[in-house]
């Protein structure tokens, strides 16, 4: 099973920092996401695209996990040579993660 089967995700960007918001389709799946999406696993999965730290915030009242990823490879939106200069597609990269 992949994260895509359980949750949706939105990426935001602030320079070379990317935010990834993960929300389960079913609120009841939130505890499972908290267990499965450890900082270590997410950082390992995103390693090709994220060079720096990954910080996780839990927001149980809205059943959401927020990952703040530093050091998006390529230099961030303004100077990147990547096709997706913003890193908008990181959300879909994360959803490809096997659980």
């Amino acid at each position: 099973m992949r994260l895509h089967d359980l949750a949706h995700c939105r990426a935001g960007d602030k320079g070379t920092v990317a935010t990834l918001t993960v929300v389960p389709y079913d609120d009841a799946a939130y505890p499972e996401l908290v267990r499965s999406l450890s900082v270590e696993r997410v950082r390992a999965h995103l390693e090709p695209w994220v060079a720096g730290d990954v910080v996780r915030h839990e927001l149980p009242l809205v059943y959401a996990l927020q990952f703040v990823c530093s050091g998006v490879r390529g230099g961030g939106v303004t100077v990147s040579t990547a096709l997706d200069t913003h890193g908008k597609s990181l959300s879909s990269r994360l959803l490809a993660m096997e659980l």
């Binding site: 935001g12 935010t19 918001t21 929300v23 927001l59 809205v62 059943y63 959401a64 927020q66």
Partner: peptide, 8 residues
């Protein structure tokens, strides 16, 4: 919920 945490 997605927008609540967008770029936060």
């Amino acid at each position: 919920r997605e927008q609540l945490l967008y770029e936060v």
